[in-house]
Amino acid sequence: MRKTHNLAQLQIDEFLNIGDTVVDATIKGGDATRFLASRVGDNGHVLSFSAHKNEIDEVAASLFLSGLTARVELIEKDFSMIPKYLNPTEPVAVFLFQTDPGLDAQALVQTIQHVQLYLKSHGLIVLDGHLADPAIVQTLAYAQTLPADAYAVRYFSDPLSMEAALLIQRL
C-alpha cells in the first residue's frame, strides 16, 4: 500500500505541467523542493521558503548537485510571507506545506486563505504531515467550509503510521 506522502505526490503529478509555478512553503529537508523542481521543467519556477538559513543552505547544495538550481528561488522567510512573493499575473499550480506539530496552525490557515487567490484552475494546495498535527486538523476544518462547486477536498490518512495528506483543489 502506498504512503499518504506518495498519494499526494501522485495527485501533484497528475495536475502539474511543465512550465508551471509552484511553491514549497516549508522546505524541511528539501525533498519536496527537488521533487517539484524535477517536474516543472526548465521553464518552470519553484519558490521555496524557510525561515532557517541552514535549511536554505542544505537545499541550495542539493539543488546544485542535482542540476536544478536555475528552476528554484530559495527564500529565507517564513511561509506566512508567501503572498508577498506571488505575482497576480502568474497563477500557481501547487502550494505544498509539510506540517509538523510545531507549525503555527492559525498562521497556516490564514496563509492558505491568502494563497487561494493565486491558485490556478485545477491547482492544488497540499498538506503533508500526521493525523494529530494541529495544522492538518485546523486546515481540514477550514477546507470543509469551502464551497463544493469551487473546490474539491481529499484527505488521505494511515491510522497505523499516523501519516496524513490533505489536498485542496480549485475547480
Rank of each mutant, 00 (worst) to 15 (best):
L68G: 03
R71H: 08
V137I: 11
V23P: 15
S121H: 09
L16V: 15
L65Y: 14
L65V: 08
M162L: 09
Y142H: 12
P83R: 00
K120N: 06
D31H: 13
A132D: 15
L108Q: 12
R34T: 13
S48Y: 05
I136C: 02
Q138Y: 13
R34C: 14
D57W: 05
P101R: 06
D128V: 06
V115H: 09
A61M: 11
D20N: 12
H122C: 07
Y118M: 00
R39M: 09
L167I: 06
V92F: 13
V153Q: 09
F97K: 05
Q113I: 00
S48W: 03
N43F: 03
L166I: 05
L171R: 06
V115E: 12
Y155A: 05
T89A: 07
Q144L: 09
G41R: 03
A148R: 02
R39S: 13
K77T: 01
Y155I: 02
L117S: 11
V23E: 12
H45S: 05
S48V: 08
L63Q: 03
Y151G: 04
G41A: 01
I75V: 09
K77Q: 12
K84W: 03
F97S: 05
G67T: 05
V22Y: 08
N43C: 01
L74T: 07
T145N: 09
A70S: 13
I18K: 13
T33L: 12
L63K: 02
T111R: 11
F79P: 12
Q11S: 14
R34N: 12
L119E: 02
Q106H: 14
P91Q: 04
Q113W: 00
T4M: 02
P134F: 02
V22I: 00
Q98C: 05
Q106E: 15
A32W: 13
H114F: 01
Q110S: 13
F35T: 00
M1S: 12
L117P: 03
K120Y: 04
K84Q: 03
N43L: 06
V115L: 08
H52Q: 10
L86G: 06
T111I: 09
I112D: 10
G102P: 10
K77Y: 10
L10T: 08
D104W: 14
K84A: 01
K84I: 00
Q106G: 14
D149F: 00
Y118C: 00
S157G: 01
